[in-house]
Every structure is written in C-alpha cells, then in structure tokens.
C-alpha cells in the first residue's frame, strides 16, 4: 500500500513523516525521527512505557496510528527537558531514585506531567490511580509516587513565586 505524508507538531516544531497505513506514532517517533525516549515495552498497550502527550492528553503511542495525530501537538520526554537543567518532575525522579533500570521512567514522567496538568495538587490516591496503566518491573512504585508528590509541590511553589 502507498505511503502518505503526515504532518504534526512535535515539541514545538513541525515534523513530517512518510508512513504506510497503520504505522504507529511510537514507530514514527523512534524509527523515523530518532526520538527514542519513548520506549517499547510491549507494543500492545499493556505497559505504559510508550506514553506521550497528544494535545496534553496521555496516549499510548504504540496503539496510535500516526495518521491520527495529523495536525495535533505531540509532546515526548525530549521536549519536556529544558535547555538547561531539569524539569521539576525529572529533578524529583532523580532525587528520589524513582527508577532502577530506567525503562519505565519516560512513560511515568509523561503520565505524571498529564496528571499535574489536570490536577496540580494530587493526593496519593490520585497519583496511584493515574499510574495504574504504567508498569515498573523493578518494583519502584513507592519512590515514583513520592517523586510526583515532591514535583507537584515544587511546581506549585514555583507558580506562586512567579509574577503572573
């Protein structure tokens, strides 16, 4: 079948990929654009390691045909990382050692960003509920939950400290 060109916004810039039908966003990001922070754990929607944001909503990029994001705004961990230093979520994950092998970290971080966009002051129950689709096999959920709590506080304090 013939390929088509799909254009979307990735981390604030326009990108175009030429894809066969049913190519996933995960594949376009990793194999064509070289954005490999988005991981492949299962390629069947079961582990959450490929979570990206589409128009600020968390999506499993392994199940998402790239045609579906045409004209949409896609955010991956690469574009969450500031030019200098770390995003508060990244800093909190680092400080809390909220990873062992690190393979679930990108998906966890993107999901946490989506959670905090919706709910800047989540309680522990909100966080664990949000994380139910993301698997960490090194059993590091405790530090991950704590990191998100810390990041939420840091981001909240940061917002209050800045003139609006």
């Amino acid at each position: 079948m013939a390929s088509t060109i799909v254009a979307f916004e990735l981390g604030g810039r326009e990108v175009e990929v030429m894809v066969k039908p049913m190519t996933t966003l995960q594949s376009a990001l990793r194999d064509q654009l070289g954005f490999t922070a988005t991981k492949e754990g299962c390629r069947q929607g079961g582990c959450g390691s490929c979570t990206v944001l589409v128009n600020d909503e968390p999506m499993l990029s392994c199940l998402l045909p790239v045609e579906d994001v045409a004209g949409q705004r896609v955010t991956t961990l690469e574009s969450l990382t500031p030019t200098q230093g770390l995003h508060p979520l990244q800093q909190a994950f680092l400080d809390a050692n909220a990873f062992q092998c690190g393979y679930c970290t990108p998906g966890m971080t993107m999901l946490a960003q989506a959670l905090l966009d919706h709910n800047p002051a989540p309680d522990r129950g909100d966080i664990t509920q949000a994380l139910t689709g993301n698997i960490c096999r090194c059993t590091g959920y405790g530090p991950i939950v704590r990191a998100i709590e810390v990041a939420a506080q840091a981001m909240h304090a940061g917002e209050e400290g800045q003139p609006r």
């Binding site: 490999t36 988005t38 961990l77 690469e78 990382t81 770390l86 994950f93």
Partner: peptide, 8 residues
C-alpha cells in the same frame, strides 16, 4: 546513569 534515565 540518573540524568540519562530521567531525560530519556
């Protein structure tokens, strides 16, 4: 490897 993990 911490920075690498949190930045992907």
């Amino acid at each position: 490897d911490g920075i690498g993990h949190v930045t992907g």
